[in-house]
């Protein structure tokens, strides 16, 4: 990639940071809803290695977002613990940044200022370093030309790119992505799969990626974990042993996707007919 901009002063800030190891131990969470108590997560345990790309797949409502929020520290589990690099997660922190399904960009800020938001909270950086870092990530997601644009002027795909740049800019150890591409058209999505894998390889992050699209999961994940609903549990695990970067249209990827899909349907069947369990 050509870099017309000189990022030398922000060099230190732009060094890849060691990705985190995540340990999730017996995490349970229930919600009180109008229809009664919903057990969203039932003793979920899961390890994610440093720099691993893990995809969580499951029908909607099986607790994927809840688990992500708990890993982020945005919500507290009823019981169980999340450890990041051996330290207990007790609240949100910028080592673990979240990308939501809606871009959640701040409409009162332009594109550049959105990317600067997290950087401005790093008090050790100079103004120039922050700008350099923000511009570096805008370039990484291919939006240099749009740094002065208002967020509503961007297409859905561009918005998610900005959201990705905003999440990457503070150099987190973990990226938590909650169906970030679900609302995009297929073409834009295919492009982002390539970009995300490139960025992941360049920046070495631990990524937990939630989706209900099995193909997407097989394309992106080192491992794909299958969630079952009511109560939310991890049902099955698939190791995707394919070279990267992976094209979403690879034939061998389709085989993995089929296996995951079948397993997902089985879960659906057993759930609908509890007598068969």
């Amino acid at each position: 990639m050509t870099r017309p901009h000189d990022y030398s002063t922000a060099k230190e800030e732009l060094q890849p940071i060691a990705p985190s190891k995540l340990v999730i131990e017996n995490v349970s969470k229930s919600f009180r809803a109008s229809s009664g108590t919903v057990l969203a997560l039932d003793r979920v345990s899961l390890n994610v290695a440093e720099g691993e790309f893990v995809c969580l797949v499951g029908a909607s409502g099986c607790g994927k977002s809840t688990l992500l929020s708990i890993i982020a520290g945005l919500e507290k589990p009823d019981s169980g613990t999340v450890f990041a690099d051996g330290k207990r997660v007790s609240g949100p922190g910028r080592e673990r940044l979240v990308m939501f399904q809606e871009p959640a960009l701040f409409p009162w800020l332009n594109v550049l200022s959105n990317v600067l938001f997290g950087l401005n909270l790093k008090h050790n950086l100079s103004r120039k370093d922050r700008l350099d870092v923000a511009r570096y990530y805008l370039e990484l997601v291919g939006l240099t030309r749009f740094e002065r644009a208002n967020t509503h002027e961007l297409s859905g795909g561009m918005k998610q790119r900005v959201a990705l740049a905003r999440a990457l800019a503070p150099n987190p150890r973990v990226l938590l992505m909650d169906e970030p591409f679900a609302a995009l058209d297929a073409l834009t999505r295919d492009q982002l799969y390539g970009d995300l894998q490139k960025i992941w390889q360049a920046r070495r992050k631990t990524i937990v990626f939630v989706t209900h699209n099995v193909r997407e999961a097989a394309c992106l994940g080192d491992r794909v974990l299958l969630f079952s609903p009511h109560p939310g549990r991890i049902q099955e695990e698939f190791v995707i042993d394919l070279p990267r970067p992976r094209d979403i249209n690879r034939i061998d990827l389709a085989e993995y996707a089929n296996r995951i899909s079948t397993a997902l349907k089985d879960i659906g069947r057993t759930e609908r007919k509890p007598a068969l369990v």
Binding site: A72, G73, L74, P92, G93, R94, R96, L97, V98, F100, E102, A104, F106, P107, W108, L109, F117, G118, L121, R166, P170
Partner: peptide
């Protein structure tokens, strides 16, 4: 103010006065 703005800001390390001045106030402008 959509809760998602606060959640997004929280993960980036915003809280307290910063959250009010940089997120809640501009969002309700």
């Amino acid at each position: 103010v959509p809760p998602i703005y606060r959640r997004a800001a929280m993960t980036m390390g915003s809280k307290g006065l910063h959250m009010w001045l940089k997120v809640v106030l501009p969002a309700s402008l």
